[in-house]
């Protein structure tokens, strides 16, 4: 009984250490991604206010290509390129002006995020939030996969060990008679 308790404590410790390691890896990944995104970002150039630009050369398709990666800041989760409200029409016009001023798609997106926050893009621009959003699901996936495979391997080793001592008991799979017998005995036990 005492041994079992010790084992359990050891198990919990092991689990706690594992969880801590996963959290550290998680934080590290987010940090690395954050750094790489932060260094890759272009400096923001603020346009000259007040200047009138000729927007006739900017096609609707060019505007929509940028707007498609933005969300309407006031309606809920509607991409800006398809939102029919008056506010969205104005925002698309703003994109058109910025395109006419020669800004790149990324610059316009960054500009929108600065003004309206990270909720106007499908994946946050802020390096920390971007890292958090994108790393977490992959990390969960990786943990599941690694743990699954390691348990398969570990379990297989364990099975080899038992196989040597208790040959025959494992391969009841196709043994219909013994299977049925066990089922019957189970049923009797439950009655």
């Amino acid at each position: 009984m005492k041994m079992a308790t010790n084992q359990r404590i050891a198990g919990i410790r092991w689990g706690a250490r594992l969880c801590a390691r996963i959290v550290i890896v998680w934080a590290f990944c987010i940090w690395v991604v954050q750094l790489s995104i932060a260094s890759a970002q272009e400096p923001i150039t603020t346009p000259e206010p007040g200047a009138v630009v000729d927007t006739s050369a900017v096609s609707d398709d060019a505007v929509n290509a940028v707007a498609a990666s933005l969300y309407c800041p006031v309606c809920e989760n509607i991409p800006l390129d398809v939102c029919p409200t008056e506010a969205c029409i104005q925002w698309r016009e703003e994109i058109r002006i910025q395109l006419a001023e020669g800004q790149s798609e990324q610059q316009i997106i960054t500009n929108f995020v600065d003004r309206y926050g990270d909720r106007v893009v499908g994946v946050p621009e802020d390096p920390l939030l971007r890292g958090l959003s994108l790393i977490t699901p992959w990390l969960i996936g990786a943990v599941v996969l690694v743990a699954g495979v390691s348990i398969l391997i570990r379990w297989r080793r364990g099975q080899r060990g038992t196989l040597a001592t208790t040959t025959g008991t494992v391969s009841t799979l196709d043994d219909e008679a013994s299977y049925r017998a066990r089922l019957e005995s189970d049923l009797i036990k439950r009655r």
């Binding site: 990666s69 969300y71 989760n77 991409p79 926050g117 990270d118 909720r119 106007v120 893009v121 499908g122 994946v123 946050p124 802020d126 939030l129 959003s133």
Partner: peptide, 8 residues
């Protein structure tokens, strides 16, 4: 910080 995770 309010964020949206969209189709991207």
């Amino acid at each position: 910080e309010e964020i949206t995770l969209g189709s991207q």
